[in-house]
Design a protein around this nucleic acid. Sequence first.
DNA 1: CGTCCTATTGATGGGGTTCAAGGCGTGTGG
DNA 2: CCACACGCCTTGAACCCCATCAATAGGACG
Lengths: 251, 251
Amino acid sequence: MDFDPSAAFAPLHYRLQPYGGIAREDLRRLNDLPYTQMEFAVGRRIAPRGRQLDRIYLIISGWVGQSRYLMSGTRQIVHVLLPGDIVPANVFALRKLDHELEALTHVVIRLFDPEDFVNLLQTAPELNMALWWAAEQQYSILRESIVRLGRRSSIERVAHLFLELHRRLLIIRQAKEESFMLPMTQEAFRDVLGLSLVHMNRMLRQLEKQKLIERKDTTIQFRNRQELSRLCDFDPAHLHLNGEGAWGGGK
Amino acid sequence: MDFDPSAAFAPLHYRLQPYGGIAREDLRRLNDLPYTQMEFAVGRRIAPRGRQLDRIYLIISGWVGQSRYLMSGTRQIVHVLLPGDIVPANVFALRKLDHELEALTHVVIRLFDPEDFVNLLQTAPELNMALWWAAEQQYSILRESIVRLGRRSSIERVAHLFLELHRRLLIIRQAKEESFMLPMTQEAFRDVLGLSLVHMNRMLRQLEKQKLIERKDTTIQFRNRQELSRLCDFDPAHLHLNGEGAWGGGK
DNA sequence: CGTCCTATTGATGGGGTTCAAGGCGTGTGG
DNA sequence: CCACACGCCTTGAACCCCATCAATAGGACG
């Protein structure tokens, strides 16, 4: 680490690292942008569906769900945002939110003025490019979620989500090599995977019984990650872990 | 229409219209960009997973599937691209494809050099912004697909996809008010919805029996679109049909 | 006229939901 | 300090939606 961002910025810093050299100065300027900071308790709604986005949300700590409620009252969590993630992923298209933002854990977020943010990007091309790549990664995760929901069995879904979250947490250094903290309830987990609570719980126990994972409190420990990956045909390619293929965009 | 684009460009033109005034000159310059044009027969692979994107793909006519194959051989079509759609949606992040591009119908595409494309965008801010909005719409559709797969029943999925495709086709003027052409096979349809062929067929027949739709050859005619929308809780908000909320991005 | 692809329908079985009840830990108030 | 409540997790039992297997029909095409 040649740059020592404030702890608040560390996740974003790690997240953008793979996408090429971002000037220390740029990160510092991002760090120095005026902001409002807010905290939310578990389960609280951070922003409602339909809200016109007039702020850039940066997640400092905690997990945030982008979720949709159907008329029947059921919920689908479309995407789980981790520290360092930004809403909207594409800061140039400030739309109305088509989903809720909900705190899946205790959450700290920072709000920026979009104009400040975009002005900074326009004089920081590397940072700009890195954010595009981070956005692209988010969308790849959405695509992979579609595959997971459309074509994988329940046990595969559970395994696949574990492995994906683990990789994402590794990037921001909030996981160990073979374990990670899963702070959300099974209820939230269920709504990511499109399953029932009962059945998802059974699949969890089955993974334990097969000695693929271990659970202690909120910690998930992999006991045989390779076998787990094989079980659910996990391929981290969609996470674009190396920024390879980045193209300078006429800079 | 104050601008008369070549027939090839009409869908893109219609697609970008809602997102604010794009200068006629800009569209003309896009139209004049050097390109390669290619055609693909039904079922042919346009680009394989893993290919480094070094071209911008614009769909001129036909439907293209972004699909993933699992080890088991099953396929999930992650997204259906229609005329006027662009791959990659974000032309600034040229990654490796994490899915296949397949021709769901006979397809004509145009390939552009990314550098040409980006250079044009850098001197055409309105066009640039419109493309961001178009990209954002694509991602919203992905999110809605996740809800569809995760929390909707089979018959709801079928109805929902019909209504969504109809809306998208209306935008590019390739549908009538109460009907549209569905040129893809039920096999492809199945792989969008994550269902089995047999069951999906039954749901189609059931929608007919309930007098909600009618099918003649490849034409789907709505017989009671309101009831169909209610059945599947369809809400076109995710399509961002009006460009409202567009924000100038410091231009 | 046979072949191949797509659509359709019947029969059967299983993966996952729903209903129901109990366990466990934690916080809270008497 | 204990009793109780509440949230979350866990497990059993019954049912059902949807997948799978199987067979036929109906073009399109050579």
